[in-house]
């Protein structure tokens, strides 16, 4: 167990390091001269020199990389070129927005996907199964941003039940929640399409196993067997996909924030691209990639919690 944890943690740290190398390389080596990228072709030589000095571009690449990582570990991502405040400040201002959206999206996704997937498996080969499979096939093909636009046109423009976008902050919690409903739904519907399929096929697999017959022979109801016996056993592949989907979910929040004008990290990234604010983009890309890698790491650990057999082996 300890060895397993150690190996996994080591792998996780190494992956994070490798990711940081990639991010750093793309953002610092590819452009040739980041100062030129930031200021544009018509910048004066003086301004360029000043910016190089400010960004520490005169130091060798390796030194710059090491100090970037070192500072980042202490929560210092440098100064935003366009906002002229520390990047960490920008991030901590907007992180709650993105996290609320991601967590809400994940929760709704789980509830939707698990219930649809299990229902489909229980109805295997019958109308309910076909219905769920059809919807999920469709859901996979629908882009989240288009679904968002459709939802806005229906619920905000036509019915006027919900705001079309924007976020006024948590001072008015009801208004805040209302402005999160459509983004969450848009994020979750598309995500649950994939997950519902995985849940279904994984549940079908489990339903063929002997212990399900034992449960039935003990006089348990179908419903109880499905939720108490089949679902937990179906979770291992589901959790794998959830881990992989986290990448899609993170990407999804970036898109959705831009569709609904929500002031989160996803919006910040796009503002920074428009402003050629390389330090901020670099920090945010690293942050998002780190979230994806961390999600997969957590999934690895979750297996052990879900399945006692693995604990014995690990």
């Amino acid at each position: 167990m300890a060895y397993f944890l150690f190996r996994r943690t080591l792998g996780f740290v190494l992956t994070l390091l490798a990711v940081s190398v990639v991010v750093f390389a793309v953002m610092n080596v590819l452009p040739g001269d980041p100062a030129l990228t930031i200021l544009g072709m018509d910048a004066s030589e003086d301004a360029l020199a000043a910016l190089r000095e400010q960004l520490g571009l005169n130091a060798p690449l390796v030194t710059r990389y090491v100090s970037w990582v070192w500072n980042a570990l202490q929560g210092d991502f440098g100064i935003s070129h366009s906002f002229r405040v520390p990047v960490s400040e920008l991030i901590s201002e907007r992180l709650p927005m993105t996290i609320s959206l991601a967590v809400a999206g994940m929760l709704v996704t789980l509830v939707l996907a698990l219930s649809l997937g299990i229902t489909a498996a229980a109805q295997h080969g019958r109308a309910g199964d076909w219905g769920v499979m059809f919807l999920s096939q469709l859901g996979i093909a629908v882009p989240a941003f288009w679904l968002s636009i459709l939802l806005v046109m229906l619920f905000a423009v036509k019915l006027r039940w919900l705001p079309p976008g924007g976020f006024a902050g948590w001072d008015d919690p009801v208004a805040a929640l209302r402005s999160l409903i459509l983004p969450t739904v848009a994020l979750a519907l598309v995500q649950s399409a994939v997950l519902a399929r995985v849940t279904r096929s994984s549940a079908l697999e489990v339903m063929r196993q002997d212990f399900v017959r034992t449960a039935r022979a003990s006089g348990l109801s179908h419903r109880r067997i499905l939720w108490r016996h089949v679902l937990p056993n179906a979770l291992v592949p589901i959790v794998t996909i959830v881990g992989m989907q986290f990448a899609a979910l993170v990407t999804g929040t970036i898109v959705i924030e831009n569709v609904f004008y929500l002031p989160g990290l996803g919006r910040l990234i796009f503002q920074s691209i428009a402003n050629r604010d390389l330090p901020t983009v670099q920090a945010l890309v690293m942050l998002f990639a780190a979230i994806v890698v961390t999600a997969n790491f957590v999934v690895d650990l979750l297996y052990v919690v879900i399945d006692p057999r693995l604990k014995a082996r690990a």
């Binding site: 002997d210 212990f211 022979a217 016996h229 006692p308």
Partner: peptide, 28 residues
């Protein structure tokens, strides 16, 4: 119907299957 059988299983009739390896829920 299945529902009526559910009431009989365990209290009237019970069964032990052949393969004890896979016949128990591994997560419980």
């Amino acid at each position: 119907a299945e529902r009526d059988w559910q009431r009989l299983r365990s209290r009237w009739v019970a069964m032990v299957f052949q393969e004890p390896m896979a016949a128990l829920n591994p997560l419980r």
